[in-house]
Amino acid sequence: MANVTHRILLVEDDASLGRQIVKSMEEAGFEPTWLTDGDAAMRESPRAFALIVLDLMLPGAYGLDILKHIRAAGNSVPVLILSARNETRDKVRALELGADDFVTKPFFPEELIARIRARIRRPSLEAGGLVRAGGLEVDLAARSVKVDGETVELTRVEFDLLAALARRPGAAVARSWLADNVLDPDREGTERTLDVHVSRLRRKLGASGKCVATVWGVGYRLAEASE
């Protein structure tokens, strides 16, 4: 994912804020296009971008009109709304018009980048079938797991556990959720049983076992081995 450069359209009329956002987007490895004017944004083709960051208060076309325009054209590019008003009405309206998320001002650049990453990552997940993390390769459709190319035999519970993490790579999954959804409900599906399964799974995965990371207070996550 790191070697693909995503183009991002930023529509923000404030010069200082715009400059800062552009800088942090570039640092995060994105390729931003910055427009300060709503009417100019109306003329831009949304298809060229992986994501659009839209300020609500803009000179020219109002942010929501641009959103309406994009969605009316049948384009489903993720749209992230920036808003200073923190008004529920605006947010609800934006979501109704097809916005994907909103970030309320003030925000730290890290927060915005995190939001953008979360939105860009999502579609590749849904396409999913094959998930890679470190030397680990999980084929969700075929229900097979390879470590450094070698197939590893897993029990049903172990595979379901790994698959549950692999479906959302990088995201933590609660132990309670895993216990409820992965463990056999007939046999006591407690969280302690879950921990036992996880340690067995880790052992089977060998060096890639650390890809199944423990998340404090939460549960487990499929992480890049380098972490």
Binding site: A114, W177, W216, V218
Partner: peptide, 19 residues
């Protein structure tokens, strides 16, 4: 995510899980 910028400089780990 909003609290990352606050937590990370103090080496506080903040994580969440959703269904």
């Amino acid at each position: 995510e909003r609290h990352w910028p606050l937590a990370s400089p103090r080496a506080i780990e903040i994580e969440c899980a959703v269904p």
